[in-house]
Design a protein around this nucleic acid. Structure first.
Lengths: 110, 110
DNA sequence: TCTATATTTCCATAAATATAGAAATGATGT
DNA sequence: ACATCATTTCTATATTTATGGAAATATAGA
């Protein structure tokens, strides 16, 4: 993963409607949900939802799968995990990075 | 953390220059770097960098600390960790979520 | 084929965001 | 106080992104 790829993933969820859609999909599990159910749950007009779903799919954070008349959307957990790994990559110059070292996992000052 | 707060954090790194700045800070460790060093390393004009640093600080992903004539910027690891927790919250409706269940941690199909 | 339902594309408009030069502010040492 | 260096604010412009109605497309059952 490079910076541009990560920006693409981040931008796809850096928007209120899309973040809500994505979290709904994360919570829905691997089977996902049809677009209409997402629209109903989040009260988003169809064309607006379609625009946002396309963004998520293009970024790679969601997958699309037609099933009969419905199109199911599901979160791509691998892409999400890859993104999170990228964000903390080489954290603190590779120095030990545990709760004790006040680094990446630093706790509230006490 | 709510959706709007998460969007604020995500938007602050969903931009190429800012993501590079943030990762540089993550890798620099808790002491951070002065603005000028960031500008030099990433070849970003001062005013542009200042704009982006303000975004990161306002979002809460970076902290600012004056030291003499320099202003040091450091990554806020807690905010980052909080964001990552939010993104996977209630994953798969709370069902078991291990490598075996083809859920959040699902592996490549084999 | 006709009808109903699901979803997407088209389109125009509105709003938010990024860029960087120039000028202003702030801090330090002399 | 002055000169110098670090950083920010101001400003204008360019670019990207979001919104949702209306029309188009696709699927399936009667």
């Amino acid at each position: 993963m490079d910076t541009q790829a990560a920006v693409k993933l981040l931008a796809s969820i850096a928007q209120e409607a899309r973040l809500e859609i994505f979290r709904l999909l994360v919570q829905a599990g691997p089977n996902g949900l049809p677009a209409g159910a997402i629209a109903d749950t989040l009260a988003i007009p169809a064309s607006t939802l379609s625009f946002h779903l396309k963004e998520l799919v293009h970024a790679g954070l969601a997958n699309q799968q037609p099933q009969g008349r419905f199109i199911y959307y599901a979160a791509n957990y691998q892409a999400m995990n890859g993104l999170m790994a990228f964000l903390t990559e080489n954290c603190c110059q590779g120095q030990a990075c545990t709760p004790d070292t006040a680094c990446c996992n630093e706790k509230e000052p006490s």
